[in-house]
């Protein structure tokens, strides 16, 4: 048990600080310039780096604070996509995104130009921190949330997005990212316990993911949230190139995973609720994570927020980071004691 890996990371886009909120509002109203806004984002990212560093996070992120929604940067750098002016609801949250429409063949046209400005690499802040993690929407979620007027089927679209993501991940690698987590809420979102993805679609998804992404020298993770992952956990854990499979335990009863296998993957234990301000007790989180690492086929655990922490005010999002770190320390001590 002492060799069981215990890690801590974010799950996606972090919450903007009240200062960034203020400056970005001023920017919209013409009372602040682009430079001031950029400085606010950099300061914000620096503070977040420092926090993760002080808490001993296994992999660190800039929080992708500049991202206006989880699809936007991908939409902006992908030819064949047109971004709508109208707003669409982001799953069952009170946040919105601009839905892209597929009007032609998808190809990355400007990630190095645009994308690099959307992730704060900040070598001064990350020196000594080799492990950079980035969060991207997964191919199934992208295919589910766009309005497709070009491809003949969703399967074709998923495959096309896999190619797009392969290029984007290659670009991120060149910029120093060593781990990419694909977030796939669309795989599990919906009413009831039934999987939202058919078995043929799931097979295609696994194949596309494997073929397009497995050759990259980068650690790949998959996180499912906003729904119950139990019906498809074993199939997803069968994707060879991923090291970690994340579960939103605010939506998935752990008892329903007893028959599933993690197939040697780490469990991404999303038991810290990113959509409620009630701050969890680290002891409870450590206990929950211990139970998750005992699931069949689990090789370790990454304790993470159930989804992006952008649904909380910054102060509360940061408090949850401390809970993640404290619970990981408790769990490590507990596993060492077992040995």
């Amino acid at each position: 048990m002492a060799n069981t890996r215990v890690e801590v990371t974010l799950s996606g886009i972090h919450s903007r600080s009240e200062n960034t909120v203020r400056v970005s509002r001023d920017f919209e109203r013409g009372r602040a310039g682009a430079q001031e806004l950029s400085r606010a984002f950099r300061d914000d990212a620096d503070a977040l780096f420092a926090l993760q560093k002080s808490y001993g996070f296994s992999k660190v992120s800039d929080g992708q604070l500049r991202w206006q929604d989880p699809l936007r940067p991908i939409s902006e750098v992908t030819g064949g996509l047109v971004i709508s002016a109208d707003l669409s609801r982001w799953f069952d949250t009170n946040t919105f995104y601009k839905k892209p429409t597929v009007v032609g063949e998808l190809e990355v046209t400007g990630w190095d130009r645009v994308g690099s400005s959307l992730i704060d690499y900040r070598p001064d802040q990350t020196s000594g921190l080799k492990n950079r993690i980035a969060f991207l929407p997964g191919p199934y979620t992208l295919a589910s949330l766009v309005d497709d007027k070009f491809y003949n089927s969703k399967n074709e679209l998923v495959t096309a997005f896999c190619k797009v993501l392969e290029e984007i991940v290659s670009s991120l690698l060149r910029s120093g990212v060593s781990c990419v987590q694909f977030n796939e809420p669309s795989l599990v979102y919906g009413e009831g316990k039934a999987s939202q993805i058919g078995s043929k679609e799931l097979s295609n998804y696994r194949r596309g993911f494997q073929n397009m992404l497995s050759d990259l020298p980068v650690e790949l993770r998959l996180h499912t949230y906003f729904g119950n992952s139990a019906p498809i956990v074993s199939q997803l854990a069968g994707i060879e190139c991923i090291t970690t499979l994340g579960i939103d335990f605010t939506q998935t009863p752990i008892s329903e995973l007893e028959g599933s296998s993690f197939n040697g993957k780490m469990v991404g234990c999303g038991c810290v609720n990113s959509r409620n301000s009630l701050v969890e007790d680290p002891k409870w989180v450590a206990e929950f994570a211990a139970n998750s690492v005992a699931l069949k086929g689990a090789s370790g655990v990454t304790i993470l927020p159930s989804s992006d922490l952008r649904y909380l005010p910054r102060d509360y999002a940061d408090r949850k980071l401390k809970v993640l770190a404290d619970s990981a320390s408790l769990l490590r001590r507990r596993l060492e004691a077992v040995q």
Partner: peptide
């Protein structure tokens, strides 16, 4: 009242618990 949460782009709303 807890603080600001993004609604979309640079638009936010205040949330309470």
């Amino acid at each position: 009242l807890l603080g600001s949460v993004q609604s979309f782009d640079n638009k936010y709303y205040t949330k309470a618990a």
